[in-house]
Simulated assay, not measured.
Amino acid sequence: MAPSVLVDQNNLVAAPTKSQVSDRVAIKASHPNPSLQVTADHKLKSVEAPIYAPRAGEALVHIKATGICGSDIHFWKTGRIGSLVFEGDCIIGHEASGIVLQCGEGVTHLKPGDRVAVEPGVPCEHCFLCDDGRYNLCEDVQFAGVYPYEGTMQRYKNHPAKWLHKLPDNVTFAEGALLEPLSVVMNGITSAGLSLGRGVVVCGAGPIGLIAVAAARASGAHPIVVTDLEPARLAFAKEFVPSCITYQVDRTKDAQGNAQAIRALFGSREYVAPETVLECTGVESSVCTAAYTARRGGTVMVIGVGKAIMNNLPFMHLSLAEIELRFINRYRDTWPPAIACLSGGILDLKKLVSHVFPLEKAQDALHLCADTRNGSIKVLIVDEEEASL
């Protein structure tokens, strides 16, 4: 493949040297490109990353905000999530927004200066799943921040322009970074089929669970119960969505015992038990509790990411009660409606941001986020540098 042709737009970048003849053309820039990598041996490494000219169909983006996801922590600590394995060093991060600096050949819907949110998964667009519109299931997806595809915890990143979404003026970069976890929740809620006046339980009051509580409320579900082990997170959930009911998981009870206590919050009759449970932790004991919590004929929608094999799921209970145990893989076609939710005031997620770190202190941000004793909700890494090269 021939190297990308670098077009100088408004003197944003310098021309490449003649020795740069690889597929990507590196740019000599007046600003460095600090980045954070997870290494194959489970370490964090701050690296000065190269900056490349955008190829045809790409845009070069100055990343202004990136949220830390639980998967970033998981990749750092364990090196894998299911079949996704870090076999080498890789820049992490995928919840991001920024400013377009330069557009590659053929990009017409974006221009330098546009504020955008990054949809991090880039599907192949040729397989039967992509043809069917289920591009989130594409096996050849190139997902930012999952080895070997570079993520957004860096100052400058190229990304296919098709998967960059313009932000309205009233949506901040911080909110733009929250569109990715909101998209996860929107996919789960849409697939679960929440409806007006129907009860729902949200297992887990982490960032995904809290967004699920807010989105469930906006969807008209009622009543809404949110569960967690940590009283501080439940207190935040009550502040975030005052109408929700909180339940602190009792470590002395088994899954059935906790499920019985949760169902009691909905009343004593079977038909008022929660029709839908949104399981946002991925923890096996929580999934089991969710299975016993849903009413007969109900749905357990697993949104959280868990271990590869779970051995103790109550198979026959699910079977005899015809409870649907369902799953989602990321999202599809969610960015435009998610942007509309924030721009239109349907959801206000700004309170979720508990800590903000500059890009140069990204390692500190990861360490804080990894320790639950710090009480973080959503940690953002931001870059205040001017959007120029």
Score class of each variant (00 low, 15 high):
134 R>L: 15
41 D>I: 11
246 T>W: 05
351 K>L: 15
327 F>D: 05
55 R>A: 15
294 A>Y: 07
340 A>G: 14
222 H>R: 13
368 L>N: 04
324 E>W: 09
131 D>Q: 14
36 L>S: 03
267 G>A: 06
234 L>T: 08
294 A>M: 06
252 T>W: 00
343 S>P: 09
287 V>R: 09
201 V>P: 07
205 A>I: 09
36 L>F: 01
109 H>V: 14
321 A>W: 01
81 I>P: 01
206 G>Y: 04
286 S>Y: 02
88 G>A: 09
43 K>Q: 15
371 D>T: 13
259 A>V: 06
130 C>N: 12
330 R>C: 14
41 D>R: 13
35 S>G: 04
337 P>D: 13
181 P>N: 05
324 E>F: 10
82 G>K: 00
308 A>F: 09
190 T>W: 08
301 M>S: 11
320 L>R: 11
202 V>P: 12
139 E>C: 02
5 V>R: 11
280 C>Y: 04
157 K>Q: 06
243 S>Q: 15
312 N>K: 10
208 I>D: 01
51 I>G: 03
279 E>V: 12
84 L>C: 00
206 G>Q: 01
105 E>Y: 02
77 K>Y: 02
375 G>S: 05
39 T>F: 01
329 N>G: 00
139 E>Y: 03
191 S>A: 14
109 H>L: 14
339 I>T: 12
133 G>E: 07
226 V>S: 01
205 A>G: 07
128 F>E: 12
159 H>P: 12
18 K>A: 11
219 S>D: 11
176 G>T: 07
219 S>K: 12
362 A>G: 03
313 L>D: 01
26 A>C: 13
79 G>M: 04
104 G>W: 08
10 N>F: 12
332 R>S: 07
247 Y>C: 03
235 A>V: 15
70 G>S: 07
103 C>P: 00
304 G>M: 10
41 D>F: 10
82 G>Q: 01
261 A>R: 14
90 C>R: 01
258 N>C: 07
121 G>R: 04
66 T>K: 03
286 S>E: 10
88 G>Y: 09
9 Q>R: 11
309 I>G: 00
74 H>V: 03
290 A>L: 04
345 G>L: 03
50 P>R: 05
135 Y>L: 10
162 K>H: 14
132 D>K: 14
17 T>K: 13
24 R>M: 11
365 A>G: 07
160 P>L: 15
52 Y>H: 13
274 P>G: 08
22 S>H: 10
321 A>G: 02
229 L>I: 13
214 A>E: 13
29 A>T: 15
366 L>K: 06
316 M>I: 11
207 P>R: 00
267 G>K: 03
220 G>W: 00
205 A>C: 09
215 A>Q: 11
23 D>E: 13
20 Q>H: 14
93 G>M: 04
2 A>N: 12
148 P>R: 05
275 E>V: 03
88 G>S: 09
83 S>E: 09
290 A>K: 06
373 R>E: 12
157 K>C: 00
188 G>Q: 10
